[in-house]
């Protein structure tokens, strides 16, 4: 693992020293190729050689998945905030409602859970870290951590407080453990004082962490 085998430099070389004359990739040039990184490249090479998929299909899939970001979830939330009919359809059938906006929810049914003054929702997958990647992109490291997965299901109020989210004494907390075929997204509360904002302005208030349910959206 790279963390156990940090840069094992056999000689000094500065960042401006270029071995190959090729353009440098600042993110990776300085990093040693780990065993698992080599395995990923090797497996891709083998699957391409075997005709399981081709290099263009692999590149296209990487690009597609990299295009999925929390901004898509923000777009869905902002629409729900301004269009109550859409909100009802979103809660009824998340995947179909998201498709209405021309977005791809992915193969697993998307389930949207709505925060209200009475109920705060938070998402976890205690068994493996399931997450709506097709809509929101790859999940943050902490979502996949032993600490989050172990604790949020048992002491959600404490974990939420660690994220700076204080739950009102009379507000129920509903944890959703994403154990099987559904994928979840929280519909956060629309912040007060945002009545005059446009739908596109509202999208800027919606953060990734609010879609997981560890924070609420703020008006600025």
């Amino acid at each position: 693992m790279s963390t156990e085998h940090p840069h094992n430099h056999s000689h000094d070389h500065g960042h401006d020293h270029d071995h190959s004359g090729a353009p440098k990739q600042p993110d990776t040039e300085d990093r040693a190729l780990t065993y698992h990184a080599a395995m990923a490249d090797a497996v891709a090479d083998l699957l391409i050689a075997k005709g399981v998929f081709n290099a263009d299909e692999l590149r296209a899939k990487i690009e597609t998945m990299q295009s999925r970001t929390p901004a898509l979830g923000a777009k869905v939330v902002a629409r729900a905030w301004v269009d109550d009919g859409f909100k009802q359809r979103l809660i009824q059938d998340g995947s179909s409602a998201v498709a209405e906006l021309g977005l791809d929810p992915g193969p697993a049914p998307l389930t949207v859970v709505e925060n209200t003054a009475e109920t705060h929702n938070v998402i976890v997958c205690t068994l493996c870290s399931c997450y709506p990647v097709f809509l929101l992109g790859k999940s943050p490291d902490w979502y996949k951590s032993r600490e989050y997965r172990s604790r949020v299901v048992r002491e959600p109020r404490t974990v939420l407080a660690e994220f700076g989210t204080d739950i009102a004494e009379d507000q129920a907390v509903r944890v959703h453990d994403s154990t099987a075929d559904l994928r979840y997204m929280v519909l956060p509360c629309r912040p007060e004082g945002t009545e005059n904002l446009s739908e596109s302005e509202l999208t800027t208030l919606v953060t990734r962490d609010s879609l997981i349910g560890v924070i609420e959206c703020k008006s600025e």
Binding site: R157, D170, A172, V173, R174, H176, D177, T179, D181
Partner: peptide, 28 residues
């Protein structure tokens, strides 16, 4: 597949929170 709702206080006897706090789990 069902979504089953459990009361936190039924899962963790020492749970600190409201009676209304729940965990929803997908179960076959």
């Amino acid at each position: 597949l069902y979504r089953v709702r459990f009361r936190q206080k039924d899962i963790w006897p020492d749970y600190k929170g409201l009676d209304a706090d729940t965990v929803d789990i997908e179960l076959f």
